[in-house]
Amino acid sequence: MPKGLVVIDKERCKGCGLCVSVCPFGVLTITRELNRFGYNVAGVSAPEKCTGCAMCAQMCPDAAIEVYREAKVKEGV
């Protein structure tokens, strides 16, 4: 399974926890880090487990999450 990558826009995040609650692989957590609006922002705690399924992004009420997957390097190209 190619590795996934979650990018969270900390200033948009309101620490609601929905992404954490739907991530099937426990990749995310609500950190102790505060953004300038005083919210504890979500963060990636287990990046190696991320498959890039993007369920977190689809659940985010602030469109704060973007998800990428390792581009498969085509052999012999």
Partner: peptide, 8 residues
């Protein structure tokens, strides 16, 4: 090295 799956 990454391709977007979901972007804003």
């Amino acid at each position: 090295g990454f391709a977007p799956v979901y972007t804003r």
